[in-house]
């Protein structure tokens, strides 16, 4: 009985690893750099994490995790509640739809795919907030956000891949066998 409980607990914690790693990335990005130029560069790391985990280990990045991450991003970013949530859900659906196609493709293809998703997601966020404020938001900052997010993706993917190999690889094999 005790063994089963322990195994269940470990399995549950492992299932939360993608969500937790995304939260850690979000917290890291909250650190102020005290460098004037870098203050307006805010890469959307959670977007990159959602994309990566859905491609890599989609069983544990469900829609509820995406909604919770969206809510956290809205709160941490101080934007209108629901904005990130809506954007992430659309990214979730889009990435899930093409996950099979991206499977076993070279990294550069995944990266290009992410660049497209990122442009779409940030344009959607820009459109939502522009409608909300009844004014067009400056496009320059969104472009900077987009470029920095795309450029940071290889690093995020590398770290997340390490997390995946370290904690989740065995589970994935079991899941596929099952």
């Amino acid at each position: 009985m005790k063994e089963t409980f322990k195994e269940n607990l470990i399995a549950y914690i492992k299932a939360c690893v993608p969500f937790l790693s995304s939260v850690i990335w979000l917290l890291l990005m909250m650190m102020p750099l005290h460098v004037p130029l870098f203050q307006m560069i805010k890469p959307d790391v959670v977007l990159a994490c959602i994309y990566f985990w859905i491609l890599c280990f989609d069983h544990s990045m469900g829609v509820i995790s995406v909604v919770l991450l969206g809510l956290l991003c809205d709160m941490f970013g101080n934007v209108v509640l629901g904005t990130h949530m809506a954007v992430f859900i659309v990214v979730y659906v889009a990435t899930k739809g093409y996950a099979l196609w991206f499977n076993a493709k070279p990294f550069i293809v995944n990266w290009l795919g992410f660049a497209l998703i990122c442009v779409g997601a940030l344009m959607m966020k820009w459109a939502i907030l522009s409608i909300y404020h009844h004014r067009l938001l400056p496009i320059l900052y969104i472009a900077i956000n987009c470029v920095s997010t795309v450029l940071l993706y290889p690093l995020i993917a590398k770290v997340n891949l390490w997390v995946y190999n370290r904690y989740l690889l065995d589970d994935e094999a079991i899941h596929e066998q099952g």
């Binding site: 509820i64 909604v67 209108v80 509640l81 629901g82 949530m85 809506a86 909300y132």
Partner: peptide, 12 residues
């Protein structure tokens, strides 16, 4: 969830 997000935005 998408509907919930839209409702949250409207309520905001």
């Amino acid at each position: 969830c998408l509907l919930f997000a839209l409702v949250l935005m409207t309520l905001s």
